[in-house]
Protein backbone atom coordinates (compact mmCIF):
# COMPACT_ATOMS: atom_id res chain seq x y z
CA UNK A 1 0.00 0.00 0.00
CA UNK A 2 2.83 2.33 0.90
CA UNK A 3 6.05 2.09 -0.99
CA UNK A 4 9.24 4.15 -0.84
CA UNK A 5 11.92 3.36 -3.42
CA UNK A 6 15.45 4.65 -2.99
CA UNK A 7 14.24 7.95 -1.56
CA UNK A 8 16.68 10.78 -1.18
CA UNK A 9 15.60 14.15 0.16
CA UNK A 10 17.38 17.39 0.88
CA UNK A 11 15.58 20.36 2.43
CA UNK A 12 15.88 23.55 0.36
CA UNK A 13 19.02 25.39 1.43
CA UNK A 14 20.36 22.46 3.47
CA UNK A 15 23.92 21.30 2.91
CA UNK A 16 23.31 17.59 3.45
CA UNK A 17 20.59 15.06 2.72
CA UNK A 18 17.87 14.54 5.33
CA UNK A 19 17.21 11.10 3.84
CA UNK A 20 19.32 8.96 1.56
CA UNK A 21 18.60 5.63 -0.10
CA UNK A 22 15.55 4.81 2.02
CA UNK A 23 13.17 2.09 0.85
CA UNK A 24 10.13 0.75 2.60
CA UNK A 25 7.09 -1.31 1.58
CA UNK A 26 4.05 -1.75 3.78
CA UNK A 27 1.30 -4.20 2.87
CA UNK A 28 -2.08 -4.88 4.44
CA UNK A 29 -1.99 -6.35 7.95
CA UNK A 30 1.62 -5.28 8.46
CA UNK A 31 2.96 -3.22 11.35
CA UNK A 32 6.16 -1.33 10.49
CA UNK A 33 8.10 0.74 12.98
CA UNK A 34 10.72 3.34 12.08
CA UNK A 35 13.42 3.86 14.70
CA UNK A 36 16.42 6.07 15.06
CA UNK A 37 18.10 8.72 17.17
CA UNK A 38 16.88 12.31 17.19
CA UNK A 39 17.44 13.98 13.83
CA UNK A 40 17.82 10.69 11.95
CA UNK A 41 15.11 11.60 9.42
CA UNK A 42 12.08 9.79 10.86
CA UNK A 43 9.71 12.72 10.56
CA UNK A 44 11.01 13.60 7.09
CA UNK A 45 10.27 10.02 6.08
CA UNK A 46 6.66 10.37 7.20
CA UNK A 47 6.26 13.67 5.35
CA UNK A 48 7.55 12.07 2.17
CA UNK A 49 5.39 8.98 2.60
CA UNK A 50 2.31 11.22 2.92
CA UNK A 51 3.15 13.42 -0.04
CA UNK A 52 3.91 16.51 2.03
CA UNK A 53 7.42 16.56 0.56
CA UNK A 54 8.47 15.37 -2.88
CA UNK A 55 11.60 13.18 -2.93
CA UNK A 56 14.63 14.73 -4.61
CA UNK A 57 15.49 11.28 -5.95
CA UNK A 58 13.40 8.11 -5.86
CA UNK A 59 9.67 7.52 -5.50
CA UNK A 60 7.01 7.51 -2.82
CA UNK A 61 3.78 5.74 -3.78
CA UNK A 62 0.53 5.24 -1.94
CA UNK A 63 -1.62 2.49 -3.48
CA UNK A 64 0.29 2.67 -6.73
CA UNK A 65 0.04 6.44 -7.20
CA UNK A 66 2.79 8.92 -6.44
CA UNK A 67 2.14 10.37 -2.97
CA UNK A 68 2.42 14.10 -3.79
CA UNK A 69 -0.05 13.74 -6.67
CA UNK A 70 -2.91 12.52 -4.46
CA UNK A 71 -5.57 15.16 -3.80
CA UNK A 72 -5.53 15.64 -0.01
CA UNK A 73 -9.15 14.67 0.46
CA UNK A 74 -8.80 11.39 -1.46
CA UNK A 75 -5.59 10.54 0.36
CA UNK A 76 -7.30 11.14 3.70
CA UNK A 77 -9.81 8.38 2.83
CA UNK A 78 -6.91 5.92 2.57
CA UNK A 79 -4.43 7.10 5.16
CA UNK A 80 -5.20 8.15 8.73
CA UNK A 81 -2.50 10.04 10.59
CA UNK A 82 -1.94 10.66 14.29
CA UNK A 83 0.60 13.50 14.27
CA UNK A 84 3.09 13.94 17.06
CA UNK A 85 1.26 16.83 18.60
CA UNK A 86 -1.51 19.28 17.94
CA UNK A 87 -3.25 21.87 20.02
CA UNK A 88 -6.91 22.57 19.79
CA UNK A 89 -7.71 26.23 19.32
CA UNK A 90 -11.22 25.92 20.69
CA UNK A 91 -12.57 23.56 23.36
CA UNK A 92 -14.06 20.47 21.80
CA UNK A 93 -15.83 17.31 22.92
CA UNK A 94 -14.54 13.82 22.12
CA UNK A 95 -17.34 12.92 19.71
CA UNK A 96 -16.92 16.21 17.82
CA UNK A 97 -13.21 15.74 17.31
CA UNK A 98 -13.67 12.14 16.14
CA UNK A 99 -16.39 13.33 13.75
CA UNK A 100 -13.76 15.55 12.09
CA UNK A 101 -12.26 12.29 10.85
CA UNK A 102 -15.28 11.97 8.55
CA UNK A 103 -14.36 15.12 6.64
CA UNK A 104 -12.72 13.30 3.72
CA UNK A 105 -15.96 11.39 3.13
CA UNK A 106 -18.29 14.41 3.11
CA UNK A 107 -19.35 16.52 0.15
CA UNK A 108 -18.99 20.29 0.17
CA UNK A 109 -22.53 21.16 1.24
CA UNK A 110 -23.76 17.75 2.44
CA UNK A 111 -24.55 17.00 6.07
CA UNK A 112 -23.09 14.12 8.05
CA UNK A 113 -25.09 11.00 7.22
CA UNK A 114 -26.09 8.06 9.41
CA UNK A 115 -23.13 6.11 8.07
CA UNK A 116 -20.77 8.85 9.26
CA UNK A 117 -22.13 8.68 12.79
CA UNK A 118 -21.96 4.87 12.62
CA UNK A 119 -18.28 5.10 11.61
CA UNK A 120 -17.63 7.44 14.55
CA UNK A 121 -19.30 5.00 16.94
CA UNK A 122 -17.26 2.10 15.56
CA UNK A 123 -14.04 4.10 15.92
CA UNK A 124 -14.90 5.09 19.50
CA UNK A 125 -15.61 1.44 20.37
CA UNK A 126 -12.49 0.14 18.65
CA UNK A 127 -10.37 2.47 20.77
CA UNK A 128 -12.40 1.79 23.90
CA UNK A 129 -13.28 5.44 24.43
CA UNK A 130 -17.05 5.32 23.80
CA UNK A 131 -17.68 6.11 27.48
CA UNK A 132 -15.74 9.37 26.98
CA UNK A 133 -17.75 10.50 23.95
CA UNK A 134 -19.37 13.49 25.65
CA UNK A 135 -16.34 14.61 27.64
CA UNK A 136 -14.36 17.76 26.83
CA UNK A 137 -10.94 16.98 25.40
CA UNK A 138 -9.13 18.98 28.05
CA UNK A 139 -10.55 16.80 30.82
CA UNK A 140 -8.89 13.66 29.38
CA UNK A 141 -5.68 12.07 30.62
CA UNK A 142 -2.75 11.84 28.20
CA UNK A 143 -3.50 8.19 27.47
CA UNK A 144 -7.21 8.78 26.86
CA UNK A 145 -6.39 11.71 24.57
CA UNK A 146 -4.07 9.59 22.42
CA UNK A 147 -6.75 6.91 22.10
CA UNK A 148 -9.22 9.57 21.00
CA UNK A 149 -6.79 10.79 18.35
CA UNK A 150 -6.36 7.23 17.09
CA UNK A 151 -10.16 6.99 17.02
CA UNK A 152 -10.33 10.11 14.86
CA UNK A 153 -7.87 8.57 12.40
CA UNK A 154 -9.93 5.36 12.40
CA UNK A 155 -13.11 7.32 11.68
CA UNK A 156 -11.47 8.14 8.35
CA UNK A 157 -11.81 4.39 7.65
CA UNK A 158 -8.28 4.29 6.28
CA UNK A 159 -6.35 1.36 4.90
CA UNK A 160 -3.15 2.66 6.39
CA UNK A 161 -2.54 4.22 9.79
CA UNK A 162 0.49 6.43 10.45
CA UNK A 163 1.46 7.32 14.01
CA UNK A 164 4.26 9.72 14.94
CA UNK A 165 5.63 8.91 18.40
CA UNK A 166 2.23 8.13 19.89
CA UNK A 167 3.66 6.77 23.15
CA UNK A 168 5.49 9.93 24.16
CA UNK A 169 4.73 11.07 27.71
CA UNK A 170 2.45 8.12 28.41
CA UNK A 171 2.88 5.96 31.48
CA UNK A 172 3.51 2.21 31.30
CA UNK A 173 -0.11 1.11 31.29
CA UNK A 174 -1.25 3.64 28.72
CA UNK A 175 1.73 3.12 26.46
CA UNK A 176 1.26 -0.66 26.50
CA UNK A 177 -2.47 -0.14 26.03
CA UNK A 178 -1.83 1.99 22.97
CA UNK A 179 0.52 -0.54 21.36
CA UNK A 180 -1.94 -3.35 22.11
CA UNK A 181 -4.68 -1.26 20.51
CA UNK A 182 -2.65 -0.64 17.34
CA UNK A 183 -1.62 -4.31 17.12
CA UNK A 184 -5.25 -5.31 17.56
CA UNK A 185 -6.30 -3.01 14.70
CA UNK A 186 -3.71 -4.63 12.47
CA UNK A 187 -5.05 -8.11 13.33
CA UNK A 188 -8.78 -7.40 13.23
CA UNK A 189 -9.14 -4.65 10.60
CA UNK A 190 -6.22 -5.67 8.43
CA UNK A 191 -4.78 -2.14 8.66
CA UNK A 192 -1.26 -1.43 7.54
CA UNK A 193 0.61 0.58 10.17
CA UNK A 194 3.61 2.88 9.97
CA UNK A 195 4.73 3.99 13.40
CA UNK A 196 7.57 6.28 14.35
CA UNK A 197 8.79 5.61 17.83
CA UNK A 198 11.72 6.02 20.18
CA UNK A 199 10.79 2.92 22.09
CA UNK A 200 12.99 0.15 20.66
CA UNK A 201 11.61 -2.48 23.01
CA UNK A 202 7.95 -1.90 22.32
CA UNK A 203 8.62 -1.63 18.59
CA UNK A 204 10.42 -4.99 18.72
CA UNK A 205 7.56 -6.58 20.67
CA UNK A 206 4.68 -5.33 18.52
CA UNK A 207 5.92 -4.57 15.01
CA UNK A 208 6.42 -7.07 12.19
CA UNK A 209 9.26 -5.15 10.67
CA UNK A 210 11.66 -2.44 11.80
CA UNK A 211 13.54 0.21 9.87
CA UNK A 212 16.46 1.76 11.73
CA UNK A 213 17.69 5.14 10.49
CA UNK A 214 20.85 7.00 11.33
CA UNK A 215 21.67 10.39 9.84
CA UNK A 216 19.06 9.85 7.15
CA UNK A 217 20.45 6.48 6.01
CA UNK A 218 18.93 3.09 6.63
CA UNK A 219 21.23 1.13 8.95
CA UNK A 220 19.17 -2.02 9.19
CA UNK A 221 15.71 -3.17 8.14
CA UNK A 222 13.65 -6.32 8.54
CA UNK A 223 12.49 -8.60 11.33
CA UNK A 224 13.13 -7.27 14.86
CA UNK A 225 15.64 -10.03 15.64
CA UNK A 226 17.75 -8.99 12.64
CA UNK A 227 17.65 -5.29 13.31
CA UNK A 228 18.01 -5.02 17.07
CA UNK A 229 21.32 -6.74 17.62
CA UNK A 230 23.70 -5.62 20.34
CA UNK A 231 26.23 -4.43 17.82
CA UNK A 232 23.80 -2.38 15.70
CA UNK A 233 22.08 -0.74 18.66
CA UNK A 234 25.36 0.18 20.34
CA UNK A 235 26.73 1.67 17.13
CA UNK A 236 23.65 3.68 16.20
CA UNK A 237 22.79 4.99 19.65
CA UNK A 238 26.41 5.26 20.89
CA UNK A 239 25.58 3.60 24.18
CA UNK A 240 26.42 0.19 25.67
CA UNK A 241 23.47 -2.20 25.93
CA UNK A 242 22.70 -5.78 26.84
CA UNK A 243 20.17 -7.80 24.85
CA UNK A 244 17.60 -10.29 26.09
CA UNK A 245 14.77 -12.13 24.44
CA UNK A 246 11.14 -11.85 25.56
CA UNK A 247 8.31 -13.58 23.66
CA UNK A 248 10.89 -14.40 21.01
CA UNK A 249 11.63 -10.70 20.40
CA UNK A 250 14.89 -8.89 21.18
CA UNK A 251 14.75 -6.52 24.13
CA UNK A 252 17.43 -3.96 24.88
CA UNK A 253 18.65 -2.98 28.32
CA UNK A 254 20.84 0.15 28.45
CA UNK A 255 23.92 -0.28 30.66
CA UNK A 256 25.69 2.16 32.97
CA UNK A 257 28.73 3.62 31.29
CA UNK A 258 31.32 2.61 33.91
CA UNK A 259 32.78 -0.90 33.53
CA UNK A 260 32.24 -1.85 37.20
CA UNK A 261 28.49 -1.55 37.06
CA UNK A 262 28.07 -3.67 33.92
CA UNK A 263 26.10 -6.82 34.63
Amino acid sequence: MLRLDGVRYRYPGATSDALQGVSLAIARREFHAVLGPNGSGKTTLVRIALGGLTPTVGRADVIGRSAPSWPRQELARLVGVVPQREDNLFPQRVRETVLLGRYPHLTLWGRERAEDHAAVDRALRACDVQHLADRWLWTLSGGEYQRVRVARALAQEPKLLVLDEPGMSLDLKHEMGLFELVRGLVETNGLGVLMITHDLNLAARFADSLLLLEGGRPVAAGAPADVLTKQIVETVFSWPVAMQTVDGRPQMIPLRQSKESRA
Partner: peptide
Protein backbone atom coordinates in the same frame (compact mmCIF):
# COMPACT_ATOMS: atom_id res chain seq x y z
CA UNK B 1 -0.58 19.73 9.75
CA UNK B 2 -3.53 17.85 11.22
CA UNK B 3 -5.97 19.66 8.93
CA UNK B 4 -3.97 18.48 5.92
CA UNK B 5 -3.92 14.88 7.11
CA UNK B 6 -7.70 15.02 7.57
CA UNK B 7 -8.07 15.98 3.92
CA UNK B 8 -8.19 19.79 3.86
CA UNK B 9 -6.34 21.60 1.08
Amino acid sequence: ESAGYLGAD
